[in-house]
Write a protein that binds this DNA or RNA. Structure first.
Lengths: 248, 248
DNA sequence: CTTCAGTGCGTACAACGTACACAGCGATGT
DNA sequence: ACATCGCTGTGTACGTTGTACGCACTGAAG
């Protein structure tokens, strides 16, 4: 009906899917080439290599060697895709079988999750579905809730403790990633280089005299770039607080 | 050059900015009608009323009664706009002058920040700039660092403690908002209604026998919908952990 | 051999961010 | 008084995005 609208391009074939061209195709291709598995893998690969923003339905289709709309048969939309991606990478989270102490379990997951998010920074950029209950995330939660439940805390406190750790881990990793990407956007490759670049602004800010505590930190801190230490510090604070509620 | 492309609409004037029409304009309008203040206020208003996704350069222009590109004279792009919005609402954060104890200060800011984020849920959806150092955010940080610094902790620990609380608060509020929006998207107006709607899936999940700890929680928890309590629980865990490092 | 449900394709659309060249205004230097 | 200039707002246009919708092809079932 509206086919006549097309203008004929000078290029060979891409513009004109004529009968003859189609004739040359080796075979109409066996169907069911797309699976959720393949879709998830491709999306994660794109996100890891080119950043979360590069995960586009079109880019995904290209990578899968398929038409832009093809994936929509398997996922309801972009949100589904995010959930799929999160679930896929979250499968990497494991806890040593030996660990039975609640603190070991929670601590191990926390450290692993941080590493996971740093390895897949797009996890921090996600719109909302930080909470999506995918199979692998359910498994992780279950393991931690189980570890806490045997300590005699009431059900509400168990969940609250678990969520406290999770919240800290996500918030922390997220800000770490944000800083890292900010640096990368400006081409700064180290903390020193970053501080050198920001020095003028910092000098101005400090000259206002409004931030003495911050200045004190800037002058005397020794581990400004040790985010792993900082993460562990915060994590242990949370865990200590939980331990206290478990009666040491 | 390419003006002839335009097709004449049937509507009165919007399509034809003719000489005569312009003649009727009362006055060419005094310039400098746009300010960062006005832009920020309009953007926040849109976000509060229609959600963060509705904050569009075009929508913003409409609200300001201005052409789509006008705001670009004042803001470098969408990122600048987010920063502006965050700074504006963050001005609401204050701490009672009386509070001098580090714990009161940090706790008060944490509770206020949660309220602030719940009141402006778009704060949770932001792409990365959770860290942007805007004036009002700097002021908030300064106040908390100062409160911690007088307790004899080394500079690194002060910053780590501050960031631990901040990370928890952001992660926590973010997940709370995510859950809330998920419920709203489905039209569920209470925790009970949500659970009723999800019951079938839950029954299935539990029937697999893979989530006993979760099932235990589902059956015996008494404060499932008390997110404020849960937040306070986690917050106090973090604060306890910090207190311990301050020598009680 | 026909039919059918499932899968992939193609086209189309509205909305987005923003580049770029232009136009009017106020202040400024003469 | 007047020319000039820099700042602010305008208009148009482009390339991309998510995705709705109808069609075309497939392997298996009847």
């Amino acid at each position: 009906m509206a086919v006549a609208k097309k203008k004929e391009g000078e290029e060979s074939g891409a513009e004109a899917p004529s009968l003859w061209e189609r004739m040359e195709r080796p075979a109409p291709a066996p169907r069911t080439s797309l699976t959720l598995e393949r879709i998830a893998a491709a999306a994660v690969e794109i996100a890891d290599e080119e950043g979360g923003a590069a995960v586009t339905m079109r880019r995904l289709a290209t990578k899968l060697g398929v038409a832009p709309m093809a994936a929509y048969r398997h996922v309801n939309g972009k949100d589904d895709l995010w959930a799929l991606m999160i679930d896929r990478v979250s499968r990497e989270l494991t806890v040593p079988d030996g660990a039975t102490d609640w603190r070991d379990v929670l601590r191990s997951y926390a450290l692993q999750t941080r590493e996971l998010m740093l390895a897949h920074p797009w996890m921090a950029v996600m719109p909302t579905p930080v909470i999506t209950l995918t199979p692998s995330r359910m498994a992780v939660a279950e393991r931690q809730l189980a570890a806490l439940a045997v300590c005699g805390l009431d059900a509400d406190s168990v969940m609250a403790a678990f969520r406290a750790v999770t919240s800290f881990v996500h918030g922390s990793a997220q800000s770490e990633i944000a800083v890292r990407e900010y640096q990368e956007r400006h081409g700064w490759t180290s903390g020193d280089e970053t501080r050198r670049a920001l020095a003028p602004q910092m000098v101005y800010l400090m000259s206002t005299g409004r931030y003495p505590a911050y200045e004190q930190y800037a002058l005397s801190a020794a581990r400004k770039d040790d985010r792993a230490w900082e993460f562990a510090f915060g994590l242990d604070c949370v865990l200590d607080g939980i331990a206290r509620r478990l009666g040491i």
